[in-house]
Design a protein around this nucleic acid. Structure first.
Length: 717
DNA sequence: GTGCCTCGAGTTCC
DNA sequence: CTCGAGGCAC
């Protein structure tokens, strides 16, 4: 039997034939196992065939087939998973903690849509599964890709692992094997299904028992078990883990699934997905809250972890009108269950110094389990929070302060960040000392000052403060900035400690200084020739950097990712940006130009000018930029619309849409919406009651339309 | 001046 | 993820 023939004895033709046979047999076995749930061979046999396939390929690399099992299963590179950019961003949800928050959510939607309080408005309500989100892409009815949420923009390619989950169909139900011509009638050409991967309580307990029996580490909770299982590099391990999946939404679609949220979910169920059986359609707030209470009551008997209820506006046309804020849709909200609480002892209060010099107090706690995770640190925000006041001086915790040695109540805000909810005065020792917030930076000794009206105290040491310098470097290499692979927070700290890297520019001379010679990176502990080479390559790769990333990476106060993007698109090139900001002293035309950017105000402008006017900081920036090739901003893909690139101002009463809606709509069409009329304005849309703006527009000879004229122009009725 | 709506900054644990 | 604060509309 040729299966048994030694790989070394195979000639090329025999190898080619056998690879073909192996590909076919393994694909069959996969289908039988994952799709039909009827295995045709044992796991050991399956593994043996895969191993043989790999061995033959190793000897005849040129014969490796496009459909080789090694590409489909276990093909993930050792470094990790490939990255996948989501065509439609995977957003998170806004949270509601009280019924009032939900009422406000509904009221806001009515306001936004211009609907009176008595107009009917339906929502779906379904349990919020405590798992991890996954996006599944089906082309021609066949699963071709699965990606984790990641940062919402880019996730990890876990396709092979997703294929092992029985709730995830490899083909949409009704996908014809042989009649692709009929496809458009029956199924969407392209469908991205989104949902939650989770593990049931029973499966979690059994898995942990197995793990313990095998001497492997057990998981803290089902969520971690699910996350750990999905992110296995070897899909065979994932396949052995009992993961499940509920579909709750969608991303890119070639055709709408339905005209309502509930209808779309029914359609997903028809296509073969598990959807949550607890989902209800609710007519209005009272029904929503009743469903919340009902689901909360059934929480313990569902058999899987949930952490709240998600409400979504049912009408998809209305969802469309509401659109999105930067990270959340306006038409959905998560109503969270009350957080789990636990009492423990506060051992000490430590101070951390951040990138901007902010002194942040951290609570060191006796370890305690909260919500399935052991917590030993918690944030204390700032000195007012410790003292029992909020930013406005109003009492929190009824004014009770927090002292080292106290018994404190801990919870995980949003089920993530540990915080202190309360303090037990009855257990406080008589000699407990009031905590005195340091007035000097604990890292560099510089005075730590608090600006009037500011909640945080900041170290004034600037770049001479080691903590600030290191944090700024960490920010520089972070994901949204230079994102240098192999140079994370830990490495930055180590390089800093040894004086190898003191400022961003040093990263780009690292190879020059430590690529050869006496002291070499490859001789450092934990490094080798290969890893050193990889790091130098990763650094070299980032010498070309998009302008927005560079601006963000500089770490100028008040200039985050969004502001950096605004600045980059306004100035387009580094020389233009640099010259403008350098010249933008108060009351100069350059300052005016800076302030004219929608989203840039006085505080940000001052912060920018200040950074570039500081000689030390400026010199550091210049040294850095000398190593870089800054990519000008890519023009946004031009939107096909008559108003693309135009600056539009709305004034007066708009009768057919709300102002917010008009703005969102115009921006989606590529227009810039400004608040006041100036020489730069291209178009004024004036409703009844327009006053000074219409007059000014007339004086400047700016084209003016009424609301109907505008809607006709953009082709909406 | 007030009240949204976002963004920025700092945070923990796996 | 949350809080504070910046930016802007009303």
């Amino acid at each position: 039997m040729s299966d048994q023939q030694k790989v070394d004895d195979l000639d090329e033709d025999a190898a080619r034939a056998e690879l073909e046979r192996l590909a076919r047999r393994l694909a069959e076995a996969n289908r039988a196992y994952h799709r039909d749930d009827a295995p045709v061979m044992s796991d050991a046999e399956f593994d043996a065939l895969r191993a043989r396939n790999a061995a033959i390929e190793a000897r005849f690399p040129a014969l490796r087939r496009d459909d080789s099992p090694s590409r489909q299963v276990g093909a993930a590179p050792a470094e990790g998973f490939g990255k996948i950019r989501h065509e439609v961003r995977m957003l998170s949800l806004e949270n509601a903690f009280e019924a009032d928050d939900v009422a406000e959510f509904v009221a806001r939607i009515r306001r936004y849509l211009g609907l009176p309080a008595e107009a009917p408005l339906a929502f779906t309500a379904e349990p919020k599964i405590d798992g991890l989100s996954l996006s599944l892409r089906y082309e021609g009815g066949v699963l071709v890709q699965a990606a984790t949420r990641g940062d919402g923009e880019t996730g990890e390619n876990v396709t092979e692992n997703a294929r092992t989950i029985t709730d995830i169909p490899a083909r949409l139900r009704g996908a014809p094997d042989l009649l692709p011509d009929l496809l458009p009638d029956l199924l969407p050409d392209l469908l991205e299904v989104r949902g939650e991967v989770y593990m049931s309580h029973a499966d979690f307990a059994a898995l942990n028992e197995r793990q313990a029996g095998a001497g492997a580490k057990t998981f803290a909770n089902p969520r971690n078990a699910a996350a750990g299982s999905l992110r296995q590099l070897d899909p065979a391990i994932t396949a052995a883990r009992p993961l499940r999946f509920f579909a709750y939404g969608w991303g890119k679609l070639s055709a709408p699934l339905a005209d309502s949220q509930s209808g779309a979910l029914s359609r997903l169920a028809e296509l073969g997905f598990a959807t949550n059986p607890e989902m209800r359609r609710c007519e209005g707030l009272d029904a929503m809250l009743a469903t919340y209470r009902a689901i909360e009551q059934r929480r313990a008997t569902l058999g899987y972890d949930i952490d709240g209820v998600v409400y979504k506006l049912d009408d998809l046309a209305l969802q469309d009108r509401l659109g999105f804020r930067s990270t959340t849709p306006r038409w959905a909200i998560a109503h969270k269950f009350p957080a789990e609480l636990a009492w423990t002892r506060l051992r000490a209060i430590d101070i951390q110094v951040g990138r901007t010099g902010a002194l942040s107090p951290v609570a060191r706690l006796d370890p305690v389990t909260v919500g399935g995770v052991v917590v030993s640190n918690a944030t204390l925000h700032n000195e007012d929070y410790i003292a029992g006041r909020d930013a406005k001086g109003a009492p929190i915790r009824e004014g009770r302060d927090i002292r080292p040695g106290d018994w404190v109540q801990v919870y995980r805000a949003g089920d993530v960040i540990p915080k202190i909810a309360d303090v037990d005065l009855s257990r406080r020792k008589n000699d407990a000392q009031v905590y005195v917030f340091p007035q000097e930076c604990p890292e560099c000794g510089s005075p730590a000052l608090r600006e009037p009206g500011d909640a945080v105290r900041r170290c004034t040491g600037g770049l001479i403060c080691p903590a600030q310098a290191v944090e700024r470097l960490k920010h520089f290499v972070s994901r949204a900035a230079f994102d240098i692979e192999g140079l994370g927070a830990k490495q930055v700290e180590a390089f800093w400690r040894d004086g190898w890297i003191r400022e961003p520019a040093d990263i780009f001379t690292l190879q020059e200084r430590y690529g050869s010679g006496l002291k070499q990176l490859k001789n450092r502990e934990g490094w080798g020739a290969k890893s050193a080479e990889n790091l130098f390559a990763a650094i070299a790769e980032k010498r070309r950097i998009p302008l927005n990333r560079l601006i963000f990476a500089l770490g100028i106060r008040h200039v985050g990712e969004a502001a950096a993007q605004l600045l980059a698109s306004h100035y387009a090139t580094w020389p233009a940006f640099e010259a403008a900001v350098t010249a933008a002293a108060p009351d100069t035309p350059e300052r005016e130009d800076l302030l004219s950017i929608d989203g840039v105000g006085a505080v940000m402008a001052a912060s920018l000018t200040q950074a570039f006017a500081n000689p030390a900081e400026r010199a550091s920036i210049d040294r850095l930029v000398a190593h870089l090739e800054v990519e000008p901003v890519r023009r946004r893909a031009p939107v096909e619309s008559p108003v693309a690139g135009k600056t539009v101002v709305f004034t007066g009463t708009l009768e057919r849409m709300t102002r917010a809606e008009a703005k969102a709509r115009a921006e989606a069409l590529g227009a810039k919406v400004a608040g006041s009329v100036s020489a730069r304005t291209d178009l004024l849309v004036a409703g009844p009651g327009a006053g000074s703006k219409a007059k000014k527009a007339a004086e400047l000879g700016i084209e003016t339309l009424d609301e109907d004229g505008w809607l006709a122009l953009i082709g909406a009725g």
